[in-house]
């Protein structure tokens, strides 16, 4: 079992997301994260899928993805060869007494204050998954009221 980041370039049409996700669900695979958006070309969307699984089965899933008529390109993005980012929104319990301490932690992670109330504070933080995991870990003693992540997006690095 290992984690894979699969980037799938598809026709921007209805039903394509269901076709793609269906290939995973048909094999009993849970998708860890999925980010979909249009690209610079409005006819084309790109999906970044993060999934854990046996290498051989994932190889098969990639081939099956390639077989879908609406799939233009499938690539496996290794951490070393790609830039990977995600965004998280994290709402913490934050009584006035703790505010300074929490803001200090946030500064270390370059997390931005997105919202604040008397009892809570909401940060937006972006970066690779490891950075966000770490922030969540360190923030959790204060009490996470709610958190969500966009899912990873990934683009291949260029080297001349």
């Amino acid at each position: 079992m290992s984690q894979h980041v699969i980037s799938v370039k598809v026709e921007n049409k209805f039903g394509v997301l269901a076709r793609v996700s269906g290939l995973f669900s048909a094999r009993g695979y849970n998708i860890d994260s999925l980010a979909v958006s249009r690209t610079e070309n409005e006819d084309i969307s790109v999906m970044t899928i993060v999934v854990n699984g046996d290498d051989r089965i994932l190889e098969q899933v990639k081939k099956q993805l390639n077989k879908l008529i609406d799939v233009i390109k499938v690539s496996d993005h290794a951490v070393q060869s790609s830039v990977q980012r995600e965004l998280a929104l994290i709402k913490l319990n934050c009584p006035a007494a703790k505010r300074g301490e929490i803001l200090q932690l946030a500064e270390l992670f370059k997390a931005e204050v997105a919202d604040i109330s008397l009892k809570t504070i909401t940060f937006s933080i972006k970066g690779d998954s490891e950075k966000i995991d770490r922030f969540v870990e360190l923030a959790s003693p204060y009490g996470i009221k709610e958190s969500m992540r966009t899912g990873l997006v990934s683009i291949l690095k260029e080297r001349d």
Partner: peptide
């Protein structure tokens, strides 16, 4: 003809 059949 089907690459997905190879090494499946």
């Amino acid at each position: 003809i089907d690459p997905a059949s190879v090494s499946k």
